[in-house]
Nucleic acid binder design. Structure first.
Length: 550
RNA sequence: GGCCAGUUGGUGAAGUGGCUUAACACACUGCCCUUUCACGGCAGCAUUCAUGGGUCCGAAUCCCGUACUGGUCACCA
């Protein structure tokens, strides 16, 4: 029996040779310096904040360098794979304006010449390489049971030795070709393990694009490369094969991958592949109940999921700005000096990317979102919030649609210019800010009167104001001087400074008067500019609302 | 336990040996502006960079030890 015989019986279905495969994945024809990056999630449902961050950085790097960004689906863990998981990921990405140049574009379709882009469909390719390794004596079948592996582990723990399948613990490594062949022939289950030639006492160095040099002991673990039940590859093996064939130049991934670098290095070296560059991103953390930091978890933390922010009505662009600020330490400053700048104008710099995990700060996200929304035109705000309303606030959606011009005019109050009004951190804040503008919603309201609460006084003010002073055609200055005039007439102070000096001389001040009007017409003590509000509501609505006051 | 990473205010952080008695932003507090709220303006908020030692005329920045936090050691990615 030869290694060739063993390889044949292990992989009876392999028809392609490694050389043939290599020919199908030629070098990419790209400009000097162009980066090929990828986002490679498992289709477990939806995209997590941390993965979105890396997807966005990958996308950005490819765009910055006129390279290629592709989407590869890592579905080698069949247990975790979720129905329609791929379209979920694609739509989450699209929501953030991230479109792959290559790779999956729907549940089943892909674009690009370096596919298939779903790992489960690349089985033959992995098998061809695994077979090649077996033939070369660089991989072997392993028949160890779960139980015996557990036992080994216990012994290692007891002896305070390194845990794993290596050295004399790698029992199947020394099995003769004949023995292995016989076992397979008899139908014994096996995994394929990589035969590491590494030595734990040697050092290897990873030159991380963000972190610089990191030193490790060389890998000497005979890791599993092909699993027994479905014969799919493990992550490590698929990573080496795929990123080699697809010619990825830079792999960005979470720092939880740093420890497995020696394995990847070993694999690339043994297979004769050129290693990609790596950048290990800091994790996105949160503080849990015990006050300690931990990785945001998709399962435990609702705020980890990208859809959480969508539901809240945070514009995706704002989330993107936030992620940029936590991932790139120089981004915030850049953005402050280029508030209207396009994200594409910002150039990424690995040395400015943050290495330590950052706490996810919802307050900061809200602030960024608030600023972002305040810079929209009323038309933009209308267009972007409408679809959100359709999904989450049907009632307001209908009104916004029915009275579209009116709604846009409402949005336009104190919008535009140098210092726009900043009162919406999310689309879900809109209702609270404008509901009273619609008659349909202005029912059974609670009036939030402040200092003046006496109903007779209120009525007196309203009657005087709307019968003798208010004219919808007045410009703002005239409008306000009339307000002051009436204020004086009623025995209130029109000048705040005078009032502050001698409050006892007055019944109140002009602010109290406008508050009465504001509350009577809108029920709310806090609204945008009253002049604009009155004008927009129009005299008919105003009259109706005055009559509602009992 | 082994290996690896990280550690600058409540938070994100700037900082790469003297320009730092530590920038900027968020949050918070106070004042001012103001017809409400918001906006805006001003001020306050780390004498100190986890800690101990060392190098140096000089250290948040370089070196060594320690501590703490996180990650990882699967036929999960």
């Amino acid at each position: 029996m030869t290694l060739k015989d063993l390889a044949d019986i292990m992989f009876p279905d392999v028809t392609l040779t490694v050389d043939e495969i290599e020919k199908r994945y030629p070098e990419r024809d790209l400009e000097e310096g162009a980066e090929v990056t990828r986002f490679a999630p498992s289709p477990t449902g939806f995209v997590h904040m941390g993965s979105l961050l890396s997807a966005f950085q990958d996308f950005k790097l490819a765009k910055d360098t006129k390279g290629i960004f592709y989407l590869r689906i890592e579905d080698t863990d069949t247990l975790r794979t979720v129905e329609n998981g791929i379209s979920g990921i694609i739509s989450d990405l699209a929501n953030f304006d991230i479109y792959p140049d290559e790779g999956m574009i729907s549940e089943t379709e892909s674009i690009g010449n370096y596919g298939p882009y779903i790992q489960s469909e690349r089985k033959k390719i992995y098998h061809a390489y695994a077979k090649y390794l077996v033939e070369k004596g660089l991989a072997y079948p392993c028949f160890c049971s779960k139980e015996s592996l557990d036992e080994t582990r216990k012994i290692q723990e007891l002896n305070k030795e390194r845990i794993g399948y290596y050295g004399s613990y790698a029992r199947c490594r020394t099995l003769s070709v004949d023995e292995a062949y016989e076992k397979i022939k008899n139908g014994e289950e096996f995994v394929v393990r990589f035969k590491s030639m590494g030595d734990f006492n040697n050092k290897i160095t990873l030159n991380d694009r963000m972190r610089g040099k990191i030193e490790f002991p060389e890998n000497d673990m005979d890791i599993v490369i092909i699993k027994s039940n479905d014969k799919l590859p493990t992550y490590h093996f698929a990573h080496a094969i795929d990123d080699h064939l697809m010619h990825t130049t830079t792999v960005m991934r979470g720092e939880e991958w740093i420890p497995s670098y020696p394995i990847h290095h070993d694999l690339f070296k043994t297979l004769g592949f050129k290693e990609p560059l790596y950048a290990h991103l800091g994790l996105v953390l949160k503080i849990d109940e015990n006050g300690t930091r931990r990785k945001l978890s998709k399962r435990k933390d609702p705020e980890a999921s990208v859809s959480f922010y969508h539901e809240k009505g945070i514009p995706p662009e704002a989330t993107k700005l936030y992620l940029m600020t936590i991932a790139n330490s120089n981004f915030e400053e850049w953005f402050l000096s280029n508030p209207t700048g396009k994200l594409t104008d910002f150039k990424m710099d690995f040395s400015k990317m943050s290495e330590s995990g950052s706490l996810f700060d919802v307050e900061k996200l809200f602030n960024i979102s608030k600023n972002y929304i305040s810079r929209m035109t009323s038309q933009e705000l209308y267009d972007k919030s409408l679809p959100w309303m359709e999904e989450y606030d049907k009632e307001l959606f209908e009104l916004m649609k029915k009275y579209s011009d009116y709604t846009k005019a409402i949005f336009n109050i104190e919008r535009g210019g140098e210092k726009p009004r900043k009162d919406y951190a999310s689309f879900s804040d809109i209702r609270g800010g404008i509901w009273y503008m619609y008659d349909e919603l202005f029912k059974d309201v609670n009036y939030e009167y402040q200092k003046v609460t006496d109903i007779d006084e209120i009525k007196k003010i309203l009657n005087l104001y709307f019968n003798e002073y208010y004219d919808i055609n007045d410009d703002k200055d005239t409008w306000f001087s009339k307000m002051k005039e009436m204020t004086e007439k009623l025995g209130y102070a029109s000048n705040m400074k005078d009032y502050k000096k001698n409050p006892e001389n007055y019944k109140g001040n002009v602010a109290d008067i406008s508050t009465v009007i504001r509350v009577s017409i809108t029920s709310r003590s806090q609204t945008p500019d009253l002049y604009e509000i009155l004008k927009l509501l129009g005299i008919d609505r105003i009259k109706t609302r005055i009559n509602m006051i009992k």
